[in-house]
Design a binder for these strands. Structure first.
Length: 808
RNA sequence: GGGCAAGUGGUGGAAUGGCAUACACGAUUGACUUAAAAUCAAUUGGUCGUAAGGCUGUGAGGGUUCGACUCCCUCCUUGCCCACCA
């Protein structure tokens, strides 16, 4: 017979709600803001949510028991494309559909017993929220951080929308995987590139972030230090700027390669015999497009990146290498990208594998300028591949003999000093395309006037409400453009007839600052309350999936820095500590509809209760690693709770001292594990305690301490037993127990005896025994004596309190 | 190609220089039961041995150390992120 979890869980969920048990209030000097990434309200929670939110809930409840003021809010990232698709499919409105989903989802979250302060709930699709999206957008516009430009944008013909570079995955739409095309459109961008230095620099502050995420962020920002070098054209004053991170190889540059789209190309080929051929080559390459070009080289085969055939053509023009005044040919090739660096490279075939392959294919000269320290190859024709490693400079004028690492710096400085180039830094990070030709999002608060041009909506007109009554046909184009009442507007400047912007904001905008709105979610006249923010921010613990390691976190960091520049906050980074939880798998694969391997949390709650589900998901694996769902494992979790449930049937007057010691050991271990998110081993030590209770019998004191330790993990269950033990206040209002260190010291310790590092025997001695005595004691051990027969003892290693190793 | 993880029983996992496999699942056995379930108790890395006990064992190989799952080197495999990035 299982304990009556259904009844208990309903009872305590109601109690917590009625008593506002988890209402966040600023009272002491000790605060803790625990935040889990808010969900997109699909209507149903999945195991990923369960895991994410259970981890956050356990930590919040633990911090609460430790005496912190805990802020633990929840909301909904409610704008986005699925609502539009659902509206078309189910013949409803995105607004109605989304709100219904939120209601369902909230119900499911409540069934899990999460300790949210529901009074702070927010949904990004409420005008009371997106009003502040618009406000922030206008502030950015005012500072030149939001701007419009015609750009080749990634266009998904299936979703009929533009995509951020970040939303293009392997050349396809991240949502529907349709191949992405390039299309010229006027788009809104946010100038995140203005913050690139701070975004990379401040990564250093993030000492409690996983290294992996820091690396991914740094990689994405892509800072690359090098030199821009000017190669003057043979027959004009103009120069080609090339960017290189390998200034040490400059003397080995034997040709220059331009991207097809490079602005100088047309001029270079003009009138040359190669012109016709070159133009057709450029046409061929541009047809392939940027996305195809880079995705083509991607297929999995090992090392393909640099091995793929590199097509190119000679322009007929020459330029001079400034360091040695050599005249070298200028080529065009598909492997040089206009989007990176200056769209032009100096080719050093002896020391760059891509250049090497290109040079071999097109019969271009090679020159060795870095000597491989262990190779005797002196002639470029002997090279089987480019040498990209370190060595001494050769054929490099006055730099000959220097180690290349040193020469790299010296040459760069020399080039800059002589005006042949300049030391620069290139970045991978592009500005953020935020406009979407979509309906279900925050309207961009901009008005287009024939006379005045682009005019920002006045602050007092915010929010620019998203019209709710829009018909959905599924046909292309911007749905908002069809709503006359929305589009027609008065120009705020000249009061003339004008049109509203019909694009909406990418939903990443919404989630870039929601953590700040939680400190004062109902505030009407300001984006957030500065005093509340001063108390609660930054978020002490942020928890979410690794899939948000780049974009969401980067944007949130960018917004935080922007808000600091506005003078609204005083910190640089929004999330002090970050935990990225692993995925929940079934049969080794991600749970998904298409695989048909989804385990529905609701069904598990129905069968075993939320506490069992919480317990299992924490016990099955540490939070950061992938978790393999196991139906039998959940049985085990259920068994464990039932075992505790029955302890009360056999309570003793007074527990044995030995059990008290085990209890205190468990308190120590669980406390440490809670701090370090090692919930699996915390639970294991609780299991050991329960096993000991079954051996020795517990008293009320032991059971009540056990319940507090368990309460963050299985809160309903613990509340109920706590009450049954006679406590009248909620267990959530009790105190986390402290362990007594004196109880953890054992009078007698078991010392392991090794011979040559191999375990041979052990001996029980008093903890205060001297090393000499211990050594002698070990040597006189019967088993050890046998092993020592005939072999002289060379050395004895003693690790106090633990082990003795006898070397013979 | 670059970066970051990870590789331990039949399974999930524990141990971060000191008794490898805690805790749990599964399996086997016993008790209770007319029976099953539940529960309680016991066994459970491999191998040799009647046993005591021995040998062996943390992806592979080498090294450091009195002692290595743990640190170092080389390699293999898997996962994630980035990538014709100059």
């Amino acid at each position: 017979m299982s304990y009556p979890f259904k009844e208990i869980e309903e009872k305590w969920q109601k109690y917590w709600e009625d008593n506002k048990s988890f209402k966040a209030a600023a009272s002491s000097q000790k605060k803790f803001y625990c935040l889990e990434m808010f969900p997109y309200p699909s209507g149903k929670i999945h195991m990923g949510h369960v895991r994410n939110y259970t981890i956050g809930d356990v930590y919040s409840r633990y911090k609460g028991l430790k005496g912190y003021d805990v802020l633990h809010p929840m909301g909904f990232d409610a704008f986005g494309q699925p609502a539009e698709n659902a509206a078309i499919k189910n013949n409803t409105k995105p607004d109605i559909w989304t709100r219904r989903c939120i209601d369902w989802m909230k119900l499911e979250l409540k069934k899990m017993g999460f300790s949210y302060d529901w009074e702070r709930e927010l949904s990004t699709c409420d005008s009371s929220y997106y009003k502040w999206n618009q406000w922030l957008f206008l502030k950015m516009y005012g500072r030149g951080l939001a701007y419009k430009k015609a750009a080749k944008v990634n266009w998904c013909s299936s979703c009929e929308t533009t995509l951020a570079n970040e939303e293009v995955v392997d050349g396809g739409c991240w949502r529907c995987h349709t191949t992405v095309e390039q299309k010229d459109l006027e788009q809104w961008f946010l100038k995140i590139s203005d913050y690139k230095e701070r975004l990379i620099e401040d990564l250093r502050q993030l000492k409690e972030w996983p290294e992996r995420v820091i690396a991914m962020q740094a990689n994405w920002i892509g800072m690359s230090q090098g030199v821009e070098i000017y190669f003057t054209l043979e027959d004009s004053q103009e120069a080609i700027a090339v960017f290189t991170t390998r200034a040490d190889t400059i003397f080995g540059a034997t040709y220059v390669v331009l991207a097809c789209e490079h602005p100088l190309v047309k001029e270079l080929i003009n009138g040359k015999p190669q012109e016709k051929e070159a133009l057709s080559f450029i046409k061929k390459v541009s047809k392939k497009g940027k996305i195809v070009r880079s995705s083509e080289s991607r297929p999995c085969a090992q090392g393909r990146g640099k091995e793929v055939g590199k097509e190119g053509i000679f322009t007929g023009a020459y330029c001079r290498n400034p360091v040695n005044n050599e005249l070298i040919p200028i080529w065009i090739a598909d492997y040089v990208l206009m989007e990176y660096g200056s769209g032009a490279i100096m080719a050093v075939p002896a020391h760059d594998q891509r250049d090497f392959l290109f040079a071999k294919e097109h019969n271009l000269p090679l020159r060795i300028v870095i000597q491989h320290p262990a190779s005797s190859i002196r002639h470029p024709e002997d090279l089987a591949e480019a040498y990209e490693g370190d060595g001494a400079q050769v054929n490099s004028g006055q730099f000959d003999g220097l180690p290349n690492k040193e020469a790299k710096i010296k040459i760069a400085q020399w080039i800059e000093g002589k005006g042949m180039g300049k030391i620069t830094t290139h970045w991978r990070l592009r500005d953020w395309l935020v406009s979407r030709q979509r309906y279900w999002g925050t309207p961009i608060p901009i008005i287009y006037c024939q006379k005045c041009g682009i005019v920002p909506a006045p602050y007092e007109d915010l929010p620019v409400e998203l019209p709710k009554d829009v018909s959905f046909t599924g046909e292309g184009g911007s749905p908002l453009g069809k709503v006359k009442e929305f589009v027609n507007a008065q120009c705020p400047k000249c009061k003339g007839q004008a049109n509203r912007e019909t694009d909406t904001m990418a939903t990443f905008f919404d989630s870039s600052w929601y953590f700040l709105r939680f400190v004062s979610p109902k505030l009407n006249d300001s984006v957030f309350d500065m005093n509340e923010a001063r108390y609660w921010m930054p978020v002490d613990q942020y928890i979410g999936g690794i899939e948000h390691a780049i974009l969401h976190l980067l944007y949130a960091r960018f917004f935080t820095k922007f808000l600091k520049d506005l003078g609204l906050i005083e910190f640089d980074e929004p999330f002090k500590s970050l935990l990225t939880q692993g995925m929940v798998l079934k049969d080794g694969e991600v749970m998904s509809k298409s695989r048909g391997n989804i385990v529905d949390p609701d069904a598990i709650i129905e069968e075993y209760g939320a506490d069992t589900l919480r317990l299992f998901i924490l016990f099955a694996a540490p939070p950061e690693t992938e978790l393999e769902w196991d139906d039998r494992g959940i049985e085990g979790a259920s068994k464990f709770l039932n075992r505790i449930w029955r302890i009360r049937d056999n309570l003793k007057e007074k527990a044995e001292p030995q059990l008290i010691r085990i209890l205190h050991k468990a308190i120590k271990k669980v406390s440490e594990d809670m701090e370090g998110f090692k919930f699996n081993t915390a639970i294991a030590s609780l299991m050991e305690l329960v096993n000991a209770i079954y051996q020795m019998g517990a008293d009320k004191e032991v059971l009540s301490k056990l319940l507090i330790l368990l309460s963050p993990i299985a809160p309903h269950f613990s509340e109920e037993l706590w009450q049954k033990l006679g406590f009248t206040e909620s267990i959530a209002k009790s105190e986390w127990p402290e362990y007594d260190p004196s109880l953890l010291i054992e009078e007698n310790v078991t010392i392991v005896i090794q011979i040559n590092g191999k375990l041979r025997s052990n001996v029980s001695v008093n903890k205060d025994i001297s090393e000499d005595q211990l050594g002698n004691r070990c040597l006189s051990d019967e088993t050890i004596k046998k092993w020592l027969e005939g072999s002289p003892v060379k050395k004895i290693v003693i690790v106090p309190g633990k082990l003795v190793n006898i070397v013979i």
